[in-house]
């Protein structure tokens, strides 16, 4: 990354020589070093199978590294046991590729859910009020609040997923391939939504894993490119434009053309 200083507290996410192997022989991550500054919007890009999702799951504490350290907001996840890790995850909001809404709950209930789980001191009315605010923030018409996820469009599902991710006002927002499989209009809408959400919440760190280089160039402060389980290049969009690396050139040329 492009570190502003060496102070640990400048970074929301720090990966220090993270290696991961599932079978003990083949390494998916081969020593990732990464620092994501607090308050930035960072895009992680790369070809399929380069370890993006595995790295993301390390950041979320869903996987533990074979070696190396993962620190989130100054806390080394390796030092947390399962219960502490579960509690720590309240610091994240995640928008999944499929939105991952609970299909037996309405739109409003989906957004209320994290509040009911973690803000037990709030009354039912307060929970609903906050959830409605979040849904309004992501631009979802209140007339859809009582519909099931299967009754709304893909774009609305993404908005609901984002409202749910924002419910607990997390310090880190993670977007896991948010536009994969969407049409160009919906893709642009989701990209704009990510940018607007990031700008509306100063101090929140946003991390977007994507194949979409155009979007990464347009909205991200920093871009990290992975290849074969290692960071190939990290920096701003101009660093990618200037790079002489053959793989980076190939990715940039193809990515910006489409």
């Amino acid at each position: 990354m492009t570190p502003a200083s060496n102070s640990q507290h400048k970074y929301a996410v720090e990966l220090d020589d993270v290696k991961k192997s599932f079978d003990g022989t083949e390494f998916i991550l081969k020593g990732i070093d990464l620092k994501v500054p607090k308050g930035s919007l960072t895009a992680i890009i790369g070809f399929s199978g380069t370890g993006k999702s595995v790295m993301l799951k390390h950041m979320l504490g869903l996987y533990r590294p074979t070696s190396g350290n993962v620190s989130i907001l100054g806390t080394n996840l390796n030092t947390l046991d399962d219960d502490a890790l579960t509690a720590f995850r309240c610091n994240y909001g995640v928008l999944f590729q499929s939105a991952a809404l609970f299909d037996d709950m309405t739109v409003l209930e989906n957004v209320c859910f994290p509040l009911e789980e973690h803000r037990r001191q709030l009354s039912k009315e307060q929970v609903i009020k906050i959830a409605m605010e979040k849904l309004k923030m992501v631009g979802l018409d209140p007339k859809h609040n009582h519909k099931l996820p299967s009754q709304i469009s893909g774009g609305m599902q993404k908005r609901t997923g984002l409202a749910r991710a924002l419910a607990l006002d997390p310090e880190i927002l993670i977007y896991d391939e948010p536009t994969t499989g969407l049409d160009p209009i919906l893709t642009e809408m989701v990209d704009n939504l990510i940018l607007e959400t990031h700008q509306a919440r100063p101090g929140t760190t946003s991390i977007m894993v994507s194949h979409d280089l155009k979007a990464a160039f347009r909205i991200a402060d920093y871009i990290v490119m992975l290849d074969a389980g290692k960071v190939l290049l990290s920096g701003k969009a101009e660093d990618f434009n200037k790079s002489d690396n053959e793989l980076v050139r190939k990715f940039v040329d193809k990515g910006l053309k489409h």
Binding site: L60, L62, D83, T86, A87, F88, R89, C90, Y92, V94, F96, Q97, S98, A100, L101, F102, D103, F113, P114, E117, H118, R164, L168, I174
Partner: peptide
Amino acid sequence: VNEQMDALDVMGVN
């Protein structure tokens, strides 16, 4: 398979 369990995990729900 629909990532709903991952969603619960990252929401800090056991």
